[in-house]
Structures are given as C-alpha cells and as structure tokens.
C-alpha cells in the first residue's frame, strides 16, 4: 500500500466537485417541481382573458402585462370570499382555542396526575388514533343534524357544527403529554412544597415551559381548519353562505358565455386562499417544522 504514490489530490477534488454538481442539480430539479404549482397558479391568475386561452401557454409575464384586475373580480365577484374567509377565521379561532384548552387539561392529567385506569385509558386513546375519521363522520353528521344544526341553519348553528366536533384531539393530547413529561418532577415537588395548587402549577409553570409545543399545536390546528373541506361541505349544504374558503373555492364556477372555464379568475381565487397559509408558514416556519419533525421522532 505504501508504494502507491498519492499525487491525486486534484483528481479527488475534481470528483468531489462533480458529485456536488450532480447533487445540487438534482435538488434544484426537485425544488422546481415543488414550486411549479405555485408559480403556475400565480402566473395563470395574472393572465388576461386572451392570454389564458392561448396555446401553447406563455411561461412568463412582464409586470406590465399583469392583469391585477382578476383579483378585483374575485374579491368583488359573486362568490362571497370575504364572507367565507371570515367564517373560516371564526371557526378556526374558536376550534383552536377550544382544542388548546381541552388538550392542555387532558395532557396535564395524563402527564402528572395519578389516577386509576390512567394507562389503560391512555392506551385506548392511542388505539383510537388508528381508526379512520370516516367512521366518525357518518354518525357525527347524524348527531349534529339531530342537534338541529344542519337544516335551517343559523350562523350560530354552523359555527357549533363546525367547531364542537373538533374541539379536542387525541393526537395533540399525546403530543403535549410527551412535552409535559419532559418537565422534571422536581419542579412539581418544589411547587407543592411552596403550596402551589395543581391548577396554578399547570398555568404558571407547565404551560410556559411547554409554550413552543402549544404554539405548534395552535398553528397546525388553525391551518387544519383553513384546509378543511369535507365536514364543512356536509354540514353547510343547506346554507351555503356559511361555507368555508375551500368549499367556496371548489364550488364556484368560473365560466364565460362560451362555457369555457376562466382559469385566470379561478387561479386568482386559489391564490387568495393559498396566500394566508404561505404568509403564516414563512413567519412561523420554526414552530411548524419543529412540530412535524418531533411527530416523526416519537413515532
């Protein structure tokens, strides 16, 4: 081995450069694949009536060619996006606050309190996570109908129907319990010695320590509501003014007199629905990514 002369550093370096080059090219190619739908959505939304029906499609529009008016048509159009967005924000806020509260209380009981049947009950919850939601949807639809929240639906009925079934989540309880468990017992003992009640301990110590997890839960839950489609579609079928954005988007028909779909207006609407998510994502990337990575690790 020692006989081999090692003057091949340049060769090694060249090989490394080539490997790197291939690596970055592949990553870039996939990055483009990921970005294209967004790009195409925005691009199409800015095309004018003529441009959108030209084949082959143009890949690029100069700013002077942008048809911003499409967005005005969306906002002021027949489909009340403003109202749908408001509905979504209200539903999102209420269900998120509810979920976070019930989750914190339940996670605390599972993480800190000692009661008969705790572990068995917890196992039952975990097992329930495996059951597909469709098993619940049928009965839940019957239930909210029976409560009178579907037919002749008032705004208040709609809010109840869309929030109450989602005011708690086994997955989040599990997730938060894991975080609570990492808080050392000694803190609890110290608080007990100081005469702190369980409730005060939960709010003053555990919740602040677990804040990052709670923020993650809040974001994921709110985003989930923003994307909800099936359930709101079911429960607002008799009063379409109570729909959420996804339903509004899919339900609206953008066609011209000739029956052609107006893709530019459709994509403008899609982008209006997408934009808030992108903004939230870019602002709160850290929390969202952490939640996702963690949920994988514990699996």
């Amino acid at each position: 081995m020692s006989e081999i002369l090692y003057d091949n550093e340049a060769k090694i370096r060249r090989k490394q450069m080539i490997t790197k080059g291939i690596l970055y090219s592949l990553l870039t190619a996939f990055a483009i694949f990921i970005v294209i739908p967004f790009y195409w959505m925005i691009l199409t939304s800015l095309k004018d009536a003529e441009e959108v029906f030209s084949a082959p499609p143009s890949l690029w529009l100069r700013p002077s060619e942008w048809e911003i008016q499409n967005y005005w048509l969306i906002i002021r159009g027949e489909v009340p996006y403003g109202r749908f967005m408001l509905n979504t924000v209200v539903v999102s806020a209420i269900s998120t606050v509810g979920t976070v509260l019930t989750t914190i209380l339940a996670a605390f009981a599972f993480a800190r309190l000692n009661f008969r049947g705790r572990d068995a009950f917890f196992m039952v919850l975990i097992a329930t996570m495996m059951i597909p939601g469709e098993m619940f949807v049928i009965t839940n639809f019957l239930t909210v109908s029976w409560f009178g929240w579907v037919a002749e639906q008032t705004y208040f009925d709609a809010i109840l129907a869309m929030t109450l079934p989602f005011m708690t989540s086994i997955f989040y309880i599990f997730f938060l319990r894991q975080t609570f468990k990492t808080i050392p017992n000694e803190l609890y003992y110290a608080a007990k010695v100081d005469g702190t009640s369980d409730f005060m301990y939960l709010w003053k110590i555990m919740v602040p320590i677990a804040k990052p997890t709670i923020i993650t839960i809040t974001i994921l839950n709110a985003m989930g509501t923003w994307n909800a489609f099936i359930w709101p579609q079911l429960v607002t079928q008799f009063n379409e003014s109570n729909r959420l954005v996804s339903n509004g988007l899919r339900g609206a028909a953008y066609v011209d007199e000739a029956g052609r779909v107006l893709y530019n207006e459709q994509m403008a609407a899609a982008f209006v629905v997408t934009l808030p998510l992108l903004i939230v994502f870019l602002l709160l990337k850290k929390y969202i990514m952490r939640g996702v990575s963690r949920s994988g690790i514990k699996g």
Binding site: M1, S2, E3, I4, L5, Y6, N8, E9
Partner: peptide, 11 residues
C-alpha cells in the same frame, strides 16, 4: 517514506 497528507482516510 510516503507523504499521506492528501490521501483520503480509506486509503
């Protein structure tokens, strides 16, 4: 006698 400064670890 051989200069291994730029030899990769595997070699």
């Amino acid at each position: 006698d051989s200069d291994v400064t730029s030899v990769p670890p595997e070699d």
